[in-house]
Amino acid sequence: MTVRIIEAGPQATLQGAPRGAYRHFGIPAAGPADPLSHAIANRLVGNASDRTCIEITYGPFSVEFMSAAAVAFAGAIAPVSLNDQVKPFHHTLFAEAGDVLKLGRADAGLRTYLGIAGGFQGEDFLSSQSTYLPAGFGGLEGRALKSGDMVSAHDDVSCPQHAESTPEHLRFPLTHSFALRASQGPDYESNCRTLWTEHFVVTRRASRIGIELDGDFPDLGVAENLPSAGVFPGALQLPPRGRGFLLLPDCQTTGGYPHILQVNRSDRHLLGQLRPGDSLIFLQRTPEQAAEDLANKQELLGSWLTDFQL
């Protein structure tokens, strides 16, 4: 199974399992910015949840099928058509050779995942096919997809016989306002309390590495040059006199700016859907409460996404 990219949109990359346990070499995780939507796209075509999908950062996006395939979209909801016939989002679609599948622009949210039965094939680097653009590895030649690219899928999985639909209770609605549960970071100080009441706005400086936030940030008393230490996606860093920077899957592995909050694992998948102009509040949790939130959300997802872990 192969598809030809007609239109790739602002940025489309192949993303599968994150590159785990290499951060001590400076290798970030990569992988889907919204792993939950990625898992749903895979589930709709009968794949294991970590198979490689195309991560589409805002449409328009379109592909032509070189052979028959089962595909599905999940994530930021945008109009879908197959040979100019309107098709449902969150639903398995069956395409024939020569068919053209199109995705329009989402009203809210930023990233849509195209799953294909078997999963797309990307270059393997350190046990992961996920594209990491800054270093040019994984995916298709380590780069974003462009018009004319041919992308193949594994054919070790038989095509699903029946169309599936994402259960209503797992179609998380996306708007332009986000509330993310978070815990204190290691450099949180008493005057950081305002972070729990302030509204922040995503600036235009937003990528798979991180998202800059505009808003009222506290004036930290800490030294400007903290010793660099390990950081993970979900960290909110605050450069001196700067704006906050929220880290995403392609973020650096260590950092020296104050790390004031950490978006909890239960809600980190939402970071991939924040787009410039969206507003955001942080909801305060202790690590113990966060573990409970995570277990609850995992249980909700587990009924349908049996092999997926947030």
Binding site: G20, A21, R23, H24, P227, S228, A229, G230, V231, F232, T253, T254, R265, P287, E288, A290, A291, L294, A295, Q298, Q309
Partner: peptide, 27 residues
């Protein structure tokens, strides 16, 4: 790292940071 208990073990300039799975290992 060799213990297998941690998802990531990252050395910093004056620190070692570990990431764990709260579903397996409560905080």
């Amino acid at each position: 790292r060799n213990s297998g208990s941690w998802r990531e073990v990252v050395v910093g300039r004056e620190s070692v940071t570990v990431q764990f799975d709260p579903l397996d290992l409560p905080p």
